[in-house]
Simulated assay, not measured.
Amino acid sequence: MRVLHVISEMGAGGAEALVAGMAGAGGDVGWESAVASGGGFRADALRNRGIPVFDVPVARRSLLGIARAAWATRRAVSRFRPDVVLAHNVSASLTARIAAPRRPLVTVFHGVAEADVAGAVKVLKRVSDAVVTVADAAAERLHDAGLGSAVVIPNAVFPEPAGADRATVRRAIGTPPHVPVALCPARMERQKRHDVLLDAWSLVTGDAELWLAGDGSLRADLEAKARGLRGVRFLGTRTDVRDLLEAADVTVLTSDWEGMPIALLESLAAGRPVIASDVDGVREVLAGGGGVLVPRRSPGQTAKALRGLLYSPTARSVAASRDARADAHTLMKSYDELLRTVLEGR
């Protein structure tokens, strides 16, 4: 089965990590995979592995932007000739449907802000043959907004070769071995609410450090807000988040909303406890343990959780214990079954 993944970009985000993992592991379930995207380091890595990658400009929110993306996607479809298209998120699904009106199209819905759910459902009902959500709560929200049904396939972490060890990473960043570190691997956009995290960090005392791994439109504002705060390091966009997890002690994410964040799954796989906002997808990730949920937009509660875990190895060990979640093999088998069912139905 020839599967074309369509996604806006292939950078450091969770959806991008999922696409890279699925495209790389497709052969295990009998797929020939290709990716159409706006590029990024994950796209380059797939090319280096011999997986076809087609350049598609990001579909900006304009008719011209959508038309350009759809035209480039059409060329990708013509060259790769997929049996089925797997589009990640709503805008990619719209351009994929315009580009390939006769191909089976499955959408992976990674999440949108609550105010955008109704609009997303209108698009998905028109363009998608099937919709996958990465969390039960997301499926419920789509159903409440009028989508007939969605298949829930929780995200999983794909195995990667071992990278740099803890001491090497800390030495490169300039962090002493004994200093407790909280890592926030997230794009610097409003959804992730780094402002709440920085407010919380102002309430954390001691010699701990906060590593902010990511970039975005709010970086300059956040750097200004962080002036005068002890131990805040802006690391920029990183391709080695799993190495950073090995070197950190706690992962923290203060988002307003999430689908099912890959970064938290990677943190748990690395044995690092999580402090995160009590929002839909995160709540499901931590249902079996693995960390501390804090109220959304609550610097005080976030700071309390940080103080409790950063300075207590015992508390971190207890918090990190959890039930196992679905692995990458289970995820691939679930997608394979769905895609083949949709293809046969078409």
Rank of each mutant, 00 (worst) to 15 (best):
L4T: 03
L4K: 07
G11W: 00
S33M: 06
S33Q: 03
A34E: 02
V35N: 09
G38K: 04
F41V: 04
R42W: 05
L46F: 04
R47F: 05
N48G: 15
D55M: 11
V58C: 10
R61T: 10
R74I: 07
A76V: 08
F80Y: 13
R81M: 09
H88F: 09
A96Q: 07
R103W: 08
G119M: 15
V123G: 05
K125Q: 13
R126D: 05
A138V: 00
R141T: 06
H143Q: 15
D144R: 15
A145L: 11
G163K: 14
V169T: 07
P176V: 07
A182V: 02
M188Y: 01
R190L: 14
R190C: 06
E209Y: 05
W211E: 00
L212E: 01
D215L: 07
K225V: 04
G228C: 08
F234N: 08
E246H: 13
L253P: 00
I262F: 05
I262Y: 04
A269W: 00
G271F: 00
D278V: 01
V279C: 05
R283I: 01
A287Y: 00
G289Y: 00
V292N: 00
R296I: 02
K304Y: 06
L310A: 07
P313A: 13
R322Y: 01
D323H: 09
A324E: 14
A326R: 12
K333Y: 08
S334M: 06
E344G: 14
